[in-house]
Design a protein around this nucleic acid. Structure first.
Lengths: 246, 246
DNA sequence: CGAGCGATTGATCGCCATCAAAGTGGGTGG
DNA sequence: CCACCCACTTTGATGGCGATCAATCGCTCG
């Protein structure tokens, strides 16, 4: 998962109203943002759009990585199972993000939808060929990979050294930052948690009971308010940041 | 830390004997491997070589990332401190690897030498300009970042879900794979551990006492033999792999 | 209204951290 | 060459955080 969405392309080329990607809400965030109208048309034609329900699997760990995807709506989960059933979630993918930042032949992680989602799917062979002839796209992929790498290393610090409550506080702040992105300042502060407690636990290296309990702590300390199971309001951001850093 | 060194460039251009990089032992592994003789000469001239003792700091977390480095010998450690002194090691860099896979302005991690080391240092501004005019270098950086990302996610699984002994077994196997790289098959199986127990512990999210004890377990089970403090022989690789996977 | 699944709350356990002490080895100076 | 020192590692005893086991709650849907 990334700390924040990667930078948007400096200037996103405008599109004709009959362009197949006209009206795509995530073009400026997605890798597509760096492509000119005609390049984008060719790119789009090399793939296909797909609509998925929640709980569907895009790719299994160990399977050959034959396709890459642009997520246009919904939420994806990247996870891995140990033989005995322990699960670790390596990250979540949000709309505009890209699935397929790898040079490996096989998927190392299972990618599943958490909610109903839509993707643009591209055969890897075609995608690679297209990238090869579009160096600015390659640059964007590098930037993406570098951002994901930075986020993964943050997660390594979290998993290696933070306590349960620190992990949870860090997680909430991460979501808060993400939700602030598009809009301006420090407004609403009500965070949506689209994923289940199990997903959160498997992402933070904890158990669902611990998530519940520590959320209870934050609530008791008046740092957050539980609007509903999947919505949390941050009441004291400063204190939450203090907790997150230990 | 990466699972394995990134792939070597398919064919590494030969150099004249008076080329400044002639005889560089890591050229084929390093990003330099994709550069032609004259490109490489220009590249080399844009930076400087440095020799470092063990325990020196190349860059502090939070400082501006003004330089990038190619490690030509020795071992680097990437780490981060929490305010109260807890430390997490995000990875180790081995000869031929590259320090500077980031789009951030500041270093997120402190980079220090573990042993005496040598690097080629390049000012970031010059490096970025050079990359921009050499797309195949950009491709290599992308491949590098993708590999580091895969390795980081492996580490996330390790830290999030594996037990102490599983972490240690995974770590030993990682080192074993790395040491097998250059050479052929499954020969010696004596692994060097250049880093201290503290470094290992901070990498695996454990304490040094736990490292010692679990190494003792592996030894008692005749899975490994402790040749010396910094050398371990793997006696039963299969069993070690079984332990690593849970 | 009842079934079923996810979330919460409670009681206890176990792995690894912490605190403490002894062992080891490499380097220095006498 | 050897004695000492200091840093690192190992080994031992105890404790705490989060896991596990278990029961209840609460919401959604049939």
């Amino acid at each position: 998962m990334q700390l924040r969405s990667f930078q948007e392309a400096a200037d996103v080329p405008p599109l004709e109203t009959d362009h197949p990607c006209f009206g795509c809400g995530v073009r400026r965030q997605a890798i597509c943002g760096v492509l000119e109208s005609d390049e984008l048309k060719e790119f789009r034609a090399s793939g296909a759009t797909m609509n998925l329900a929640g709980g569907e699997t895009l790719s299994f760990e160990g399977d050959p990585a034959d396709n890459v995807y642009n997520l246009t709506s919904g939420l994806l989960r990247l996870s891995k199972l140990l033989p005995d059933g322990r699960r670790q979630v390596a990250g979540f993918l949000h709309p505009g993000e890209f699935l397929g930042l790898t040079m490996e032949d096989d998927h190392a992680f299972t990618a599943e939808t958490i909610s109903a989602a839509a993707v643009c799917r591209f055969p890897r062979s075609r995608f690679d060929a297209f990238v090869e002839s579009h160096p600015h796209l390659e640059r964007r992929l590098y930037a993406l990979a570098a951002h994901e790498l930075a986020a993964s290393r943050q997660q390594i610090v979290l998993l290696g050294r933070k306590t349960a409550i620190e992990r949870l506080a860090s997680f909430l702040l991460m979501l808060a930052e993400r939700s602030e992105e598009g809009r301006g300042g420090t407004e609403s502060q009500v965070i949506r948690l689209p994923m289940s407690r199990t997903d959160i636990a498997d992402y933070l290296g904890l158990r669902i009971e611990t998530i519940s309990r520590e959320l209870g702590q934050l609530k008791a300390a008046r740092v957050v308010r539980l609007v509903s199971t999947h919505e949390i309001e941050i009441l004291d951001r400063r204190r939450l940041e203090g907790i997150a850093e230990g």
